[in-house]
Amino acid sequence: AEPLAFDKGPFGTTEPLTPKKDVTTYNNFYEFGTDKGDPASYAGKLKTSPWSVAIDGLVAKPATLALDDILKLAPLEERIYRLRCVEGWSMVIPWIGFPLSALLARVEPLGSAKFVAFETLVRPSEMPGQRGFFQPLDWPYREGLRLDEAMHPLTILAVGLYGETLPNQNGAPLRLVVPWKYGFKSIKSIVRVSLVERQPPTSWNMQNPREYGFYSNVNPAVDHPRWSQATERRIGEGGLFAPRRPTLPFNGYGEQVASLYAGMDLKTYF
């Protein structure tokens, strides 16, 4: 990981940061394996340079941008965000990135664009989780946001954490971070961004639509069908004997984002 220059950004938290060791060794990145330790063990082989992102669909100026050009779109800021995994654990991570809106502005979305679809790299030669008989997800990994969610100032594309470029296991070189949604929405190692009219298919929703909704906003009042979402375990906070903590609606970002869902039944649109 290389050092990055950045400014302090808004929306910070005073909560203690999750130790870097935990942030970089406890990952869900199924392209490298389903075990939490697999990404840290196997992601080293991934070549992240050169890297480019295709931005297409309902835009006035579709483009394939090299990473260097993407980095020139906006100044890098540090965003210290809570991350809540759908599995019931959480972290506090100092990301470095810039608002996704800066990238979208560059390609000029058309009026007909209502959603943004994202895709992760497919490269079985460097991603062992994409090889073999038994694979838990269809590749590429896909995610999506409504356009207003994508344009929200909290939504960033991250290129680093803890002051340095992203380790591969955390989604190098470019990943989404949407702090009020369960972690799996924050797609890693993005190669394609498409502006579309209809709600795009998303990986976990395709795998099990009953359990993983398109919205997947952090919500202690809506349980996962198989487990409660009322509480979470904060990783790195006292080890074996740390109590669980209550999960907050929208992961504590309700003040900023609750209005996006005014009038929606969040039990239906979970």
Partner: peptide
Amino acid sequence: LAVSDQLGADPVKTL
């Protein structure tokens, strides 16, 4: 391993 903090980031779950 769990009490000596060698079970990774989420020792409760792992144990």
